[in-house]
Design a protein around this nucleic acid. Structure first.
Length: 478
RNA sequence: GGCCCUAUCGUCUAGGGGUUAGGACAGCGCCUUUUCAAGGCGUUAACCCGGGUUCGAGUCCCGGUAGGGUCACCA
């Protein structure tokens, strides 16, 4: 069986967003599924667009999602550096080879001259093709002029894409494109092909913006006698308004923002996997190992779609639910309490499992804590007496019920939620659950919304519970 | 504009000649050990248009239309 090698090859021009990380995920999944190799390669050949800190940001984003790479920056590999700017001699050697074969030549024109050609073509409503201006004779390449590829054969190219099927493009897609720029750095078109060859990449997975330049790549493969890797085109991710491909400048969100908001890596991964792929069944919940198992190139989507944050939130809820209490606590401690143990830790340990359904996102949870949403677990709440009665009930009825409940709970066992519940249940059922339980819950929490009264009573303990009921009763009298 | 890609509920999608066009999110309704959340049940909602091929077309072909991409010393 073929040893599968995939790579994720971002340029360090800013943060990672959903679109770029989805590409990384698919390449990762395919490598892992086939017990292959996953390479992180940094394509930093455009020094002007480079943004400081991008490489670290990319690595941190992938690490957060547990997308581990076998080879990457600062690692020793059989093929040298994974950073393109550190591989310049490799590209120059390949360039010399092409020159020797007669497939490359230095560009003799100035930028202004080329601009002139382009404008003239536009004026004639023609597609600008550099090869129409190819010089008759070539000078020696001094390494300072841009080096161009000499397209060996102008023809219609047809190729197979693992996702899109048979594709083709005509002669207009073929041109004498730049291999090495004036600054000595290679272009993407050249560098990625040389690297993929040296790194043994078997599957090139990338977005569909590269379909139109594929004939250029194919003619270069031919000129260099390279066996074509399998081409796997991933569907584009559009913005939510679907008017444009998702991009950094077009409202895409920094992936690490999601971490800040408290999304679980597992939820993010699961969400990402379903943008442009499906498992061939109705199942939607997958962990990363399960995705590796289920993933397949044959079920990658052909058409583009947009990412839907509501669905992401749903995945988050699902994955939070499957966390053990200690895993949930760890996640909350990390993002809510910045890894530090909070005050009243013991009590938080009790509270966390109770509120996790309504606090799936730790940023929401943090905001709720800041707003005092859970303060009643620690200190007696303010009671607004007009909110004490259940709807269509009266303060007088409340008083009766609370007095009775106080009496019942005074002699009850508080060792479990169930023991408290069973003590009060008969009375509540008999008298009308809403009329009894609403005032009880409200006098304990002071909130219109909270967990049920038995759960709260259990957390508070017998003494505090009885004190709060008494407090509510005193307010009624006053 | 040339070339290329794509087209099923609002969204993500299943389906590959004969289906009551299935699932999920969102919406709506109901249920539950008060409320909120979660959960359960139910429900609204789609084959871009026009021609072919065929006994029969979301499904195959052609043409429109729409959306996206690409035409750089960016990747």
């Amino acid at each position: 069986m073929e040893h599968v090698v995939t790579r994720f090859a971002p340029s360090p021009t800013g943060f990672m967003h959903i679109g770029s990380v989805r590409t990384a995920l698919f390449a990762f999944l395919w490598a892992r599924k086939n017990k292959g190799t996953f390479i992180l390669r940094i394509e930093d050949t455009d020094k002007e667009r480079e943004v400081a800190g991008s490489v670290a940001h990319i690595q941190e984003s992938l690490s957060w999602l547990n997308l581990t790479w076998d080879y990457g920056p600062q690692m020793s590999t059989p093929f040298g550096s994974c950073i393109q700017s550190e591989r310049l001699p490799t590209y120059h050697a390949a360039a010399r080879e092409l020159i020797a074969k007669g497939y490359a030549y230095p560009d003799p024109y100035s930028a202004e001259e080329i601009d002139g050609f382009r404008r003239a073509a536009q004026a004639n409503k023609e597609v600008f093709l550099f090869r129409k201006h190819r010089p008759k004779t070539f000078s020696e390449w001094d390494g300072k002029r841009p080096l161009r590829f000499l397209v060996p054969e102008i023809k219609r190219y047809e190729w197979h894409d693992e996702v899109r099927g048979d594709l083709s493009a005509g002669e207009e897609a073929l041109d004498d494109f730049i291999l090495i720029k004036g600054d000595g750095y290679p272009t993407y078109n050249f560098a990625h092909i040389i690297d993929d060859m040296h790194m043994g990449v078997t599957h090139v997975m990338r977005g569909d913006e590269f379909i139109s330049s594929t004939p250029k790549f194919l003619s270069l493969y031919d000129a260099l006698g390279i066996k074509r890797p399998k081409l796997v085109t991933l569907p584009p991710i559009l913005r939510e308004d679907k008017t444009k491909k998702l991009g950094k400048r077009d409202g895409a969100k920094d992936l690490l923002e999601y971490r800040k908001e408290g999304f679980l890596p597992a939820a993010m991964i699961n969400f990402l996997a379903f943008i442009g792929w499906h498992p061939g069944s109705d199942r939607e919940l997958f962990t990363l190992p399960e995705l590796i198992e289920a993933f397949d190139i044959s079920t990658i989507q052909t058409h583009g779609g947009s990412a839907n944050e509501e669905k992401l939130l749903w995945f988050q809820h699902q994955h939070v639910k499957h966390l053990s209490d200690s895993e949930y606590k760890a996640a909350v401690m990390q993002s809510v309490f910045s890894g530090k143990e909070p005050e009243n830790e013991e009590r938080w340990n009790t509270i966390l499992p109770l509120v996790r359904e309504r606090a799936a996102l730790s940023s929401t949870f943090t905001a709720e804590i800041d707003a005092g949403e859970y303060a009643y677990f620690f200190t007696a709440p303010e009671i607004d007496i007009t909110l004490l009665p259940n709807k269509n009930s009266t303060l007088e009825v409340c008083r009766t019920h609370l007095k009775k409940i106080l009496e019942i709970l005074s002699s009850s066992d508080f060792s479990s939620v169930d023991s408290i519940k069973s003590a009060a249940w008969d009375y509540a059922s008999q008298e009308g659950r809403g009329d009894v339980l609403w005032p009880l819950r409200y006098s304990l929490s002071g909130k219109k919304q909270s967990p049920d009264p038995f759960t709260i009573a259990h957390v508070l303990g017998k003494e505090e519970t009885l004190a709060r009921i008494t407090g509510a009763l005193n307010q009624i009298h006053a």
